[in-house]
Amino acid sequence: MSGIALSRLAQERKAWRKDHPFGFVAVPTKNPDGTMNLMNWECAIPGKKGTPWEGGLFKLRMLFKDDYPSSPPKCKFEPPLFHPNVYPSGTVCLSILEEDKDWRPAITIKQILLGIQELLNEPNIQDPAQAEAYTIYCQNRVEYEKRVRAQAKKFAPS
Rank of each mutant, 00 (worst) to 15 (best):
I4T: 01
A5G: 12
A5T: 08
S7G: 06
L9P: 02
A10G: 06
Q11R: 13
E12G: 03
R13G: 00
K14T: 06
K14R: 15
A15D: 15
A15P: 01
W16K: 07
R17K: 12
R17S: 07
D19G: 05
H20R: 08
P21S: 08
F22Y: 10
G23D: 01
F24L: 04
V25A: 10
A26P: 01
V27A: 04
V27D: 02
T29A: 04
N31C: 10
P32S: 14
D33G: 03
D33V: 03
G34C: 07
G34D: 09
T35P: 04
M36T: 01
M36S: 04
M36I: 09
M36V: 05
N37Y: 13
N37K: 11
N37S: 13
L38H: 01
M39K: 06
M39V: 13
N40D: 13
W41L: 04
W41R: 01
E42V: 12
I45F: 07
P46S: 07
P46L: 06
K48R: 11
K49N: 14
K49A: 13
T51S: 12
T51A: 03
T51R: 00
P52N: 15
P52L: 08
W53R: 04
W53K: 02
E54V: 08
E54K: 03
E54G: 12
G55S: 09
G55N: 08
G55E: 12
G55R: 05
G56F: 01
G56S: 02
L57F: 07
F58S: 02
K59E: 10
K59N: 12
L60P: 02
L60I: 13
R61G: 08
R61W: 06
L63F: 12
F64S: 00
F64I: 12
K65E: 15
D66R: 02
D67Y: 05
D67T: 10
Y68F: 08
Y68Q: 01
Y68D: 00
S71L: 05
S71P: 06
P72C: 12
K74E: 11
C75R: 01
C75G: 07
C75S: 10
C75K: 00
K76D: 15
K76P: 02
K76I: 14
K76S: 15
F77S: 03
F77N: 00
E78G: 13
P79Y: 15
P80A: 14
L81N: 00
L81T: 04
F82S: 02
F82L: 02
H83R: 01
H83Y: 00
P84L: 13
N85Y: 01
V86A: 07
V86M: 11
Y87H: 04
P88L: 14
P88H: 14
S89A: 14
G90R: 03
G90W: 02
T91A: 15
T91S: 15
V92N: 01
V92L: 15
V92A: 09
L94P: 00
S95T: 08
S95P: 03
S95F: 02
I96G: 05
L97I: 15
E98K: 14
E98G: 15
E99D: 15
E99Q: 14
D100G: 08
D100N: 13
D100Y: 15
D102N: 05
D102G: 15
W103R: 00
W103G: 05
R104M: 04
R104G: 04
P105V: 07
A106P: 05
A106L: 10
I107S: 14
T108Y: 15
T108I: 14
T108S: 15
I109V: 12
I109L: 11
I109S: 04
I109R: 04
I109T: 06
K110R: 11
K110V: 09
K110L: 05
K110H: 08
K110A: 04
K110T: 04
K110N: 08
K110E: 09
Q111V: 14
Q111P: 15
Q111S: 15
Q111H: 10
I112V: 12
I112T: 15
I112R: 08
I112M: 15
I112A: 08
L113T: 11
L113R: 00
L113S: 07
L113V: 12
L114H: 11
L114K: 09
L114G: 12
L114Y: 11
L114I: 09
G115V: 00
G115K: 00
G115E: 05
I116K: 00
I116T: 11
I116V: 11
I116L: 15
Q117P: 06
Q117D: 05
Q117L: 07
E118K: 08
E118S: 05
E118P: 05
L119A: 02
L119C: 05
L120S: 03
L120H: 01
L120D: 00
N121R: 09
N121E: 11
N121D: 14
N121I: 09
N121P: 00
N121C: 09
N121F: 03
N121L: 04
N121S: 10
E122W: 06
E122T: 11
E122S: 07
E122K: 06
P123K: 00
P123F: 03
P123G: 01
P123E: 01
N124D: 01
N124S: 06
N124C: 11
N124A: 05
N124K: 03
N124R: 04
I125S: 09
I125N: 08
I125T: 09
I125W: 08
I125V: 10
I125R: 02
I125A: 06
Q126P: 02
D127S: 02
D127N: 02
D127V: 02
D127F: 05
A129G: 04
A129V: 02
Q130R: 08
Q130H: 11
Q130P: 00
A131V: 13
A131S: 14
A131T: 14
A131Y: 12
E132L: 06
E132D: 13
A133M: 03
A133V: 05
Y134N: 04
Y134H: 05
T135M: 10
I136Q: 11
I136T: 08
I136V: 06
Y137C: 04
Y137S: 04
C138F: 08
C138R: 11
Q139R: 12
V142S: 14
V142G: 12
V142A: 09
V142E: 15
E143G: 06
E143I: 06
Y144C: 01
Y144T: 00
E145V: 12
E145G: 04
K146R: 13
V148I: 14
V148A: 07
A150V: 10
A150T: 11
A150W: 08
Q151R: 01
A152D: 01
A152Y: 00
K153R: 13
K154E: 11
K154A: 11
K154V: 13
F155C: 10
P157S: 11
